[in-house]
Nucleic acid binder design. Sequence first.
DNA 1: CTGATAGTGAAGCATTCACTTAAGTATCAA
DNA 2: TTGATACTTAAGTGAATGCTTCACTATCAG
Lengths: 116, 116
Amino acid sequence: MLHYQEPLDLAFQALADPTRRGMVDRLSEGPASVSELARPFDMSLSAVVQHLAVLEASGLVRSEKVGRVRTCRIEPQALTLAERWLGERRASWERRFDRLGDFLAEDSTTSQRKKP
Amino acid sequence: MLHYQEPLDLAFQALADPTRRGMVDRLSEGPASVSELARPFDMSLSAVVQHLAVLEASGLVRSEKVGRVRTCRIEPQALTLAERWLGERRASWERRFDRLGDFLAEDSTTSQRKKP
DNA sequence: CTGATAGTGAAGCATTCACTTAAGTATCAA
DNA sequence: TTGATACTTAAGTGAATGCTTCACTATCAG
């Protein structure tokens, strides 16, 4: 079962890991090098680089190397994409919730209404 | 490496799968039974039930059984939690970005002057 | 040059994930 | 009661995930 991974899959998957959320959190305050990103975490640099690869694949982070230092920064569009998806579903639910009063007042079983 | 799974881990993990997002999408339109949730997907009912378990564990969905039918509905608080996390990071980045704009507006060492 | 710094790449390993099939258990309708 | 419906539970499988270690390549400072 090979699937093309949609942006939302990749973004949510990337955000599901606390280390990666920590990295995004750090980057939301401004750019950072790989070792700088790695510092707070109790794991090998290699592991952090692998997390970074996941973040880059998801589009949440981009980076560029100058000399021997790779500088990472957040890519807010991908963040917004996920945020919007959530917002839309919540809005849909709220719309329905608002109409609930009408349904209750009318007391009808969906489509079983007019049958004389 | 045993960890307590934080709500955000569970929520983002749950949302990382397109089937589960499909289910949340459906539920944002209103409650549904398990088989109703399963109908659009080309997989066994068992698989759908397992996806549902992930959604329930994450707090995104709750369900209750009446007779032989389990009715599922969305739990918007968990949705809001994830949405807020994203919003906060984006806000943090935007704040920084605004300050950067101010800085660049005054800075001329790294960019060329406009030709007269 | 020499050595330290910053990162890269590959292999290996335990665990988790997303399914499957198969065999249940209640519940409702006739 | 009989049979269909609506799940439920358990076991198994292959692929993906989150690490590790070790070996390696650039880059910069003195």
